[in-house]
Nucleic acid binder design. Structure first.
Length: 267
DNA sequence: ATGGTTGTGTGACAA
């Protein structure tokens, strides 16, 4: 039994529907987790996904900003949305998936980007990001007895040296400052999570999932960052058979600035 | 040090 799971910050699900459908046609994941859907739930293109077999949907959206969704061929139960800090942002949704004799709690996160100034005293958005990471430290991969865990999403932090194009030049840039990278590594360690992308491609391999829209030629300059993540509880880590970063998707028509990450687990 | 692009929804933000 194989579980194929895709995660993608889509930067508007309505505008990007043609390339999301391209991903589904080409890769046929069992479950697709989206971030930055940028629309209210009643405007989410639920029928387009249901028509392709993704009839089980956990959607947490809001008008204009943020928004996450789990679209699944497998039944979803115990759907839960958390609003860290009670700020009214749609940044999390989770559901229980049962497959291959496993019960899996799947978390889909969109961590705040944090603005440009990496100083919590001057920049409330950065303070909010640090608060958000602080709250995530309480999230345990073994929180529920008999239930494994997978966590995916746009965490807006590239924690390791080779998660960015230039460690030295990124140290004061939001997404790679020490307070963020150390914080995210603590979320992983305290929660008992395994970073599956790095299990599959350990450092010093360069791994990027995001390239800025502002580059004149994103592929030539290749100033990428690994902002998107796939983690699991320790019991599932040996079941990982493949991780694929769809770099090509950055060059698709009307692309997102993030590309899909696809994980395959075989039980 | 600055500017570069994209999305929502037609303003100014957020990323």
């Amino acid at each position: 039994m194989t579980l194929t799971l895709a995660t993608w910050n889509i930067n508007s699900v309505r505008l990007r529907l043609p390339i999301v459908e391209k991903l589904l046609d080409e890769k046929n994941p069992d479950i697709l987790c989206l971030q930055e859907t940028k629309c209210a739930n009643e405007l989410f293109p639920a029928e387009a996904f249901a028509a392709r077999g993704y009839q089980h949907q956990a959607i947490n959206g809001q008008k204009g900003y943020h928004g996450v969704a789990i679209l699944s061929k497998l039944p979803l139960s115990e759907i839960d949305c958390r609003d860290h800090g009670n700020v009214g942002h749609a940044r999390h949704v989770s559901a229980l998936v049962e497959t291959g004799g496993k019960r899996i709690r799947l978390h889909n996160f969109y961590v705040p980007a944090g603005g440009d100034e990496p100083d919590a005293a001057k920049n409330p958005k950065f303070a909010h990001k640090l608060d958000y990471i602080e709250e995530m430290k309480a999230l345990r991969a073994d929180a529920e007895a008999g239930v494994s865990s997978i966590l995916v999403g746009d965490l807006n932090i590239a924690p390791l040296e080779h998660d960015v194009w230039s460690h030295k030049q990124m140290l004061k840039i939001v997404s790679h400052t020490p307070v963020e990278t150390e914080g995210l590594l603590e979320v992983i360690a305290k929660g008992g999570w395994v970073d599956l992308m790095r299990q599959h491609a350990p450092e010093p391999a360069k791994l990027y999932t995001w390239w800025s829209y502002r580059a004149a030629d994103w592929a030539a300059s290749d100033r990428g960052r690994r902002l998107d993540h796939v983690w699991s509880s320790a019991d599932l880590a040996p079941d990982l058979t493949d991780i694929e970063i769809l770099r090509d998707a950055r060059g698709w028509e009307k692309p997102s600035d993030h590309v899909p990450v696809i994980a395959r687990l075989t039980f």
